[in-house]
Design a protein around this nucleic acid. Sequence first.
RNA 1: GGCGACGUAGCCAAGUGGUAAGGCAGCGGUCUGCAAAACCGCCAUUCGCGGGUUCAAGUCCCGCCGUCGCCUCCA
Length: 483
Amino acid sequence: MSTPSELQLYNTLTRTTEPFTTLEPGVVRMYVCGVTVYDDAHIGHAMSAIVFDVMRRYLEWSGYHVLHIVNFTDVDDKIINRANLLGIDPHELAERYIEEFLEQLKVLNVLPATRYPRATGTMPDIIGAIERLIEQGYAYAAAPDGSTAQDVYFRVERFETYGKLSRRSREDMLGGTRVEVVAYKESPADFALWKAAKTDEPAWDSPWGPGRPGWHIECSAMSLKHLGEQMDIHGGGNDLIFPHHENEIAQSESLTGKAPFSRFWVHNGMLQLVNAQTGQVEKMSKSLGNLVTIKQFLIDDDGAVLRLLVLGSHYRKPLTYNEEVLADTRRKLERLRGALQGATGSHETGTSVDTLVGAAAAAREQFTFAMNDDLNTSGALAALFELVRAINVARDAGVGEGPLLEAQTVLLELAGVLGLSLEASTPSTALEVGPFVDLLLELRGELRQAKQFALADKVRDRLSALGVVLEDTPQGTRWKFER
RNA sequence: GGCGACGUAGCCAAGUGGUAAGGCAGCGGUCUGCAAAACCGCCAUUCGCGGGUUCAAGUCCCGCCGUCGCCUCCA
């Protein structure tokens, strides 16, 4: 069977929370829909990547080996349009954005996926899959009158359980107002597997003439290629449930004859942002034009801030992004990091040490309990904050370096499971100005000793205005950058 | 219009039918030359509204109101 695990995961397919098990003991096959690369990625994309990174880290921490596949859609209308606009090759444009996105994921401390397949790198598999779907009667080629190049459509009628993921009836689908009317489709609900090339478009040779794949088939082909006929977890944003994931199920299950295509379907909620123009709260999205790019975000904040923001609420809920929430999150991160300060006392035994040891064990337990409950990261963070307090209390009580470090190691370990790095990143500017700040602190220290407090405070205030915050401690004065 | 999710303090947010975690902000105190940080204390008789089930409901059921998402570009 599978590796025993206490993890309970919400499954969109069944709309219930179920005990997590795997097809193969100890191995998790996980496929997450990546981005269509035609423009700068925004923090909504980052949120999704972070959510599934946390899931992957937690599974690994729980003892699983995780095969984590993330695809890139690198051929589609938007990429082509954008490339034409810029007068460059679509493939080159896509690769440029992929590279940039991968670089940003690194800064966000998202572990690299096992593989990052591209649609354009999976073409023989895609064409093969479409051929088999046609052979089995699940798909048909069709063309407008007078054209030789053909489209291929999936025959939705043939797939009896169509709609099971998104809980839509076929009548609902046919009643949809936005269904494109194409005369040569058998049914308006049928969706494209292959699109005949128009002029000036990238095209691949196929039995149906030059063309390119539809959006959904690439995921079916890639998951089949890299994970096999069935997988444990298929993830993505909840805006992909319909039609994308519904169509993937139809294609894959028709192709393999095996169901379920994925045993768990996991969807994250959307990042919401107030639209500056309308004042409406909306999903952050490229097409709506209300977004903060990852690039923009990283100018003012380090990646841990975004991760902590995402961890603060449950992954399935919509998350509102605004300045106030951002400011809160920065302070939260400071509090977590503050707990890593060294010992000031030297008690290696005693009740305060015992209390700290107990608190660390309790935190670990509370953390695991929360994470097992459908990745309740907010509850997991509460466990970390309680450990933070215990550490601070212990330090104040004079607990020595040994026991304190032990508790701090637990804090770092649990934070690490969430992908949160608590070691404050040192801005390069800090390295440059460090000696000068130290010089000012030395002079200020002499002023304080001479009771010249007005001057000493002036140094502190002026540094503060420049973003350098001072903290006087019995061990001397510490300083750090603050936004 | 159809389908779905959500509505918990000033803000963010967790919550297995048994009597409201955690964080931010705020207030009072300890420490400090003063701050900062840290610590201690205070901060929702109440969980959108109205019914119902139950010995017991934020948690289950029904209705209403509000917000958001999807309905073939979307993480």
